[in-house]
């Protein structure tokens, strides 16, 4: 049996894996981004105990290896009486872990904004929340396109860890096919190509964000 045949005969396995990976990636990207926007909002304002705790939690999350975090959720929590299925554990892990990284990207973008942006909003009667969501956040997001792209690629790659806790994603599909024939190269090369295609798609989407930013002079080529 040659490699092409092997892939062809198992297309349904790959399709199911791809679908699960896309769901994991899509939902986790959107949710971790929204989580990050909320976290960055919570950090907006003068330093206080609460904001210091939030920043500390962000740092803690970012220094944790993703796989250990996943193990904690999936294998550790049952000891405390909380059992999560693989999907819940996977979503929670991806969203909170990458949410912390996205929040850090937004925090960096916030510190780079000129002080006059918020001042102009305050001077025109904006309250903090309106000022953040309408004036600051859009600029922070538009300026952060390339960093988001980088982080989304990391998120995509981290979905592969979920195959370890038996979620049938693209990596699990490749492992399954490999285990069936004991020929590792074709299935793994095939899923690498699929992962690569997803990142190309992500970068195409982010280029559109980049064009919006360029049109407004917020980033330069």
């Amino acid at each position: 049996m040659n490699g092409i045949e092997m892939l062809w005969d198992n297309l349904d396995v790959f399709a199911a894996g791809l679908q699960n990976t896309l769901i994991l990636f899509g939902v986790s990207s959107a949710c971790s981004f929204m989580l990050a926007c909320v976290i960055a909002f919570l950090l907006e304002g003068q330093d206080n105990l609460f904001r210091r705790l939030v920043r500390w939690a962000l740092d803690l999350m970012r220094m944790l290896p993703f796989l250990i975090f996943l193990y904690l959720l999936y294998y550790g929590l049952p000891n405390l009486g909380i059992s999560l299925d693989v999907w819940s554990a996977g979503f929670i892990a991806l969203i909170t872990y990458h949410g912390a990284y996205f929040a850090e990207i937004l925090r960096a973008a916030r510190t780079a904004l000129p002080a006059g942006q918020a001042e102009a909003a305050y001077a025109h009667g904006f309250v903090n929340s309106n000022m953040y969501w309408r004036i600051l956040l859009p600029q922070m997001v538009m300026r952060s396109g390339p960093l988001f792209g980088n982080q989304l690629v990391c998120l995509l790659k981290d979905t592969a860890f979920l195959s370890i806790i038996t979620l049938m994603d693209l990596t699990a599909a490749a492992s399954a096919v490999q285990a069936k024939y004991f020929v590792p190269l074709p299935p793994f090369i095939f899923v690498i190509a699929l992962y690569w295609s997803i990142t190309l798609l992500v970068e195409a989407l982010l280029r559109r964000l980049g064009r919006r930013a360029q049109k407004r002079g917020l980033v330069h080529e």
């Binding site: 000129p114 006059g116 001042e119 102009a120 001077a123 407004r216």
Partner: peptide, 11 residues
Amino acid sequence: MVFQSFNLWPH
């Protein structure tokens, strides 16, 4: 208020 550095919202 009108500022020295304009502070228009660039987006």
